[in-house]
């Protein structure tokens, strides 16, 4: 990719984001938000041994706006990786690349290479349907289908034909709800609409729905942003338990949450991956000025 004009890059980033928070952040910390060079190299260990997913030189364009710039990142097996950064820094966009949810947006264009177990998921020949069965996603706002709790969970297994019989399906539903820690709360009202649950329960229902398909990687896009503190605590607890069986990538705007649930943390800024490292190291001893500014609460 040709080196692009710095000024130009900056304006594009701004327009992509078009977010009041970011503009405010810029004003508050002039030094901190100086745009990074286009050939900026991420600080910290982007590569891990035996990665589950591996991204190389990923770029995302919305139309002609450059939203993600040259990101390299590995996601390790059975680990939680948190992606943090100011609003609109591209962390959610990056997350959506990992199971090609960006395909649903017409003007979005992704270049680079993302491998899941050595398979390039942006290969033309690759089919997104099995990919998404392998890489599940939980969204910012709980979005249960307007169906019963049971049908919500059974939807994935049904479309993929994962359960051969009704009994098997019942078992999948129970196991998924149990894993999401929701079974005890809803086992007596499986036939009631999922939209009738509380916000926290709904989000755990969505998580249960995702794990009912038995994916390998779960992507979570600010899963707690719409929840109250108690519900958040439950979901966080759940994430910690799920780590045993799944690989998880979580986007969050809460640094405390990132510190609590993740083992590795990646800090994004204006489309760049600035710094990545062990969560403890990032939060106690950030190496880049921008990371430090962000986690010490100077902006963001």
């Amino acid at each position: 990719m040709a080196v692009r004009d710095e000024e130009n890059d900056m304006t594009t980033a701004e327009t992509v984001i078009a977010d009041a928070d970011l503009v405010g952040a810029k004003v508050r910390s002039k030094a901190g938000s100086r745009p990074l060079d286009n050939d900026f190299k991420t600080i910290g260990e982007v590569r891990v041994n035996d990665p589950r997913m591996s991204c190389t030189d990923v770029n995302v364009f919305y139309g002609d706006k450059h939203a993600i710039k040259h990101v390299d990142l590995d996601i390790a097996q059975n680990q939680v990786i948190a992606m943090i950064g100011p609003s609109g820094c591209g962390k959610s966009t990056f997350l959506r690349c990992l199971n090609r949810m960006n395909d649903t947006i017409d003007i979005c264009n992704v270049t680079g290479e993302i491998r899941l177990d050595e398979v390039d998921i942006y290969d033309r020949k690759l089919d997104v349907v099995p990919l998404r069965a392998q890489v599940g996603m939980v969204f910012q706002k709980p979005n249960p289908f307007p169906k019963s709790i049971y049908e919500n969970i059974a939807y994935g297994p049904r479309i993929h034909g994962l359960a051969a019989s009704r009994a098997e399906l019942d078992e999948v539903v129970e196991r998924s709800l149990a894993k999401a820690g929701l079974w005890e709360e809803v086992k007596d009202r499986l036939d009631q609409p999922g939209t009738g649950l509380s916000g926290g329960q709904q989000q755990r229902l969505c998580i249960a729905r995702t794990i009912a398909v038995d994916p390998e990687v779960i992507l979570m896009d600010e899963p707690c942003s719409a929840l109250d503190p108690i519900a958040t605590a439950k979901v966080e607890e759940l994430i910690d338990e799920l780590r045993e069986n799944y690989t998880i990538a979580i986007v969050t705007h809460s640094m405390q949450q990132a510190a609590r649930v993740s083992q590795r943390t990646a800090y994004f800024h204006l489309g760049h991956l600035v710094e990545v490292g062990d969560t403890t190291q990032i939060f106690t001893n950030p190496r880049h000025k921008l990371t430090e500014d962000y986690i010490t609460g100077r902006f963001g």
Partner: peptide, 24 residues
């Protein structure tokens, strides 16, 4: 968001329409 949820589970377009959009 409902369509997204369905796509994220690996549903095809027609499955999403028939099983999520139309019932809703």
């Amino acid at each position: 968001s409902l369509r997204d949820a369905s796509y994220a589970l690996g549903a095809t377009r027609s499955e999403t329409i028939r099983r999520v959009v139309l019932p809703a």
